[in-house]
Structure formats: structure tokens, C-alpha cells
């Protein structure tokens, strides 16, 4: 694809004048004037993307907002009728037993995943920051878990964590542990297992970004700190960490925004079960719409998710701006 795009025209081909040289135009404005035409052409570059964004992001958000106030079920698809029901959907969603669980699970899932990914990702990034033979190769192989489809990871872990024949229990058995926990089937363990898998998925991303941030810390600062007697942990605490903070902010907030809406990995591992033990706001929105075909309630649940994301979106934009200004990347 890119080959084709790159080969569209050889750069050395002489540039024949296609457009007449701009005459001295009168006052700007009007699409007939060369200046106006130029401006129209410039807009033309942007219009397809704007249209796409409107249809595939703008419309769904507005439509979802409306659907949240409508009785939108399978019947709607046949009759085209979706009566307005005010706040009924929200009342139904919020008063259901699952809502509290889903909210708590979302918070635990997000906080646990981010904390684990970040701490382990940072530790590995710091480790790889020291140059050693084959370091670059190992670091790039580390990306693999992040690049394969999430549903593949879900399937693999589902089998590793299987109660009777999974690799984990097999390993624990070899170590002499008699107990065979049902990692994904016990209500007390399932959420922990799902978080652990999600941490595994997120480590490569965190490592890569934080590694990039570490590379940007000037070597001279470490030398100066060493002269002042700060090495090892103290150098990290007083030199690395303050300079890394803009990158840290971006990684954390981006991590939260992506983790809140995770669906693939939970559906693949547990489908929200057992007994809603791993049900989150996102998976519950999916279940309401696409399993129970109560699209109105699904939309209401989705809107709750948007509000949560929006809070972090604002944080993200602030952090991003600071990183762009401060980090200079």
C-alpha cells in the first residue's frame, strides 16, 4: 500500500506548470478568485476526514445520548418506533443489582491494571535503560504481547488459567501445592485473574513509552548528581523522576482512558462472570444492548461510561499539553 503511494510519481519528474500563475487578485474572498479557489481546495483535503469523524464519532455520541431516553428494543428495528421514556432507562440501569458491582469492578480493574502495568513497566524500562548486549533485541521482542489481538491473549490465558488442565495449576502442582484454584470460575479470584492478565498486556506499552522518556534525560545530569553523591535510588528519585513526570502523566491518563473501556479481554476470559464478578460498566453496556437487546438501557450504561471517560479526557488533555510543552516531544 505504502509502496504504491510512495511510487505515485518520481520526484525528479519535471514539474509542469498546471495552474496558471496567480494573477494579482482583487480583494480576497469569493470562490471564483484564485485565492478563494485555493482555500476551497485546502478545505477539500480536510473534508473527508471531518465527515468521517462526524459520522463515526459525532453521530454515535449524539445518537447514544438520545437512545438513553428512548425505549429502544428489537421491536424498534421492525416498527421504527422508539417511544420517549424520560429517565426510565437510567433508573432501570442504576437501580439494578449489577450497577454497583459493575462500577466497583470498573474502578478496581482500572486502578489495579494501571498500578501493575506502570510499576512493572517502569521497572523493566529502567532495567533496559542500562545498555547491555542484545538489549535492543530483547526490548523489541517485549512488544509482542501488546501487538497480538486481545482476543488471542484472552484465549491463551483462558487455557493457562483453566482449573483442571491449565498450565498454572499444573505448575503449582509440580511445586507441591495441592490446591487447584479455579482462577476464572471462582467469584473471589476471577477479577484478580482478569486484572493480572490485563497487566501482562499493558506492560509492553508502558515500558516502551517510559523507556523513551528515560532516554530523554540528559546524561550530564546524572554525572552532576553523581558528583554530588547522588547515585542509584537517589539519582532516580531526584533526577530521573522529576524529568520523567510529564511522560508519566501521559502514560497514566492514557492508560486509564483505554482501560476503562476494555471489553475484549474480559469477554474473552470470563464474559463478565462468574455471577457478574468481572462485570464492568463497558461489558454491562454490551450485555444490555447486544445480548438482552435493550439498546436504550445499553445506551444509558454507555453514557455513564462516557461521563467517566470525559473526566479523564480533560486530565489527559491537560497532561498532554504539559508533556508537549515541557517534554518537548
Amino acid at each position: 500500500m505504502a509502496e504504491r503511494a510512495g511510487g505515485v510519481a518520481a520526484p525528479e519528474r519535471p514539474l509542469v506548470s498546471t495552474a496558471a500563475p496567480e494573477p494579482v487578485s482583487g480583494p480576497a474572498g469569493g470562490w471564483r478568485s484564485p485565492r478563494g479557489r485555493e482555500r476551497l481546495l485546502q478545505l477539500g483535503f480536510l473534508v473527508p476526514a471531518v465527515l468521517y469523524l462526524v459520522v463515526f464519532f459525532g453521530y454515535p455520541v449524539v445518537q447514544n445520548l438520545l437512545m438513553g431516553f428512548q425505549e429502544y428494543t428489537t421491536r424498534t428495528f421492525y416498527t421504527g418506533e422508539a417511544p420517549w421514556v424520560g429517565l426510565d432507562n437510567y433508573a432501570a440501569v442504576i437501580s439494578s443489582n449489577v450497577f454497583g458491582t459493575a462500577l466497583l469492578n470498573t474502578a478496581l480493574f482500572t486502578a489495579g491494571s494501571i498500578a501493575g502495568q506502570f510499576v512493572l513497566g517502569l521497572a523493566i524500562a529502567v532495567f533496559f535503560h542500562r545498555r547491555f548486549p542484545l538489549g535492543g533485541l530483547l526490548r523489541s521482542l517485549l512488544l509482542l504481547p501488546w501487538l497480538i489481538p486481545l482476543i488471542v491473549s484472552g484465549a491463551v490465558w483462558r487455557w493457562i488459567l483453566d482449573q483442571d488442565n491449565g498450565a498454572l495449576n499444573q505448575f503449582l502442582g509440580a511445586l507441591g501445592v495441592a490446591d487447584r484454584p479455579g482462577w476464572l470460575t471462582s467469584t473471589s479470584l476471577a477479577l484478580i485473574a482478569v486484572i493480572a492478565v490485563n497487566i501482562w498486556i499493558g506492560i509492553p506499552f508502558n515500558t516502551t513509552i517510559l523507556y523513551g522518556g528515560l532516554q530523554d534525560v540528559p546524561e550530564e545530569l546524572y554525572e552532576a548528581a553523581a558528583l554530588d553523591g547522588a547515585t542509584g535510588w537517589r539519582a532516580f528519585r531526584h533526577v530521573t523522576w522529576p524529568l520523567l513526570r510529564p511522560v508519566v502523566a501521559v502514560v497514566l491518563v492514557l492508560g486509564v482512558v483505554y482501560t476503562i473501556k476494555v471489553l475484549d479481554i474480559i469477554l474473552g476470559l470470563t464474559d463478565g462472570g462468574p455471577a457478574n464478578a468481572t462485570q464492568t460498566v463497558a461489558t454491562q453496556a454490551y450485555h444490555l444492548s447486544f445480548q438482552e437487546f435493550r439498546f436504550g438501557e445499553g445506551a444509558a450504561m454507555g453514557n455513564v461510561l462516557i461521563v467517566i471517560s470525559l473526566v479523564f479526557a480533560l486530565l489527559y488533555l491537560r497532561a498532554n499539553r504539559r508533556a508537549l510543552v515541557g517534554g518537548g516531544r
Binding site: 476526514a49 464519532f57 459525532g58 454515535p60 455520541v61 473501556k261 439498546f295 453514557n303 479523564f312 489527559y316
Partner: peptide, 23 residues
């Protein structure tokens, strides 16, 4: 437009799917 692009990253896929299904 740039702001909208950044913001679009926050929109959960399930919300997009929920609205697109009907269309």
C-alpha cells in the same frame, strides 16, 4: 479538528457500536 481527534480516542467502542447497529 485536532481537538476532536484527541477526544475521539476517549469514546468507548461499545457506544459507537450501539449507535451504528441501527444505521
Amino acid at each position: 479538528v485536532l481537538f476532536a481527534i484527541l477526544l475521539s480516542q476517549m469514546i468507548p467502542g461499545i457506544v459507537v457500536a450501539n449507535a451504528l447497529y441501527d444505521v
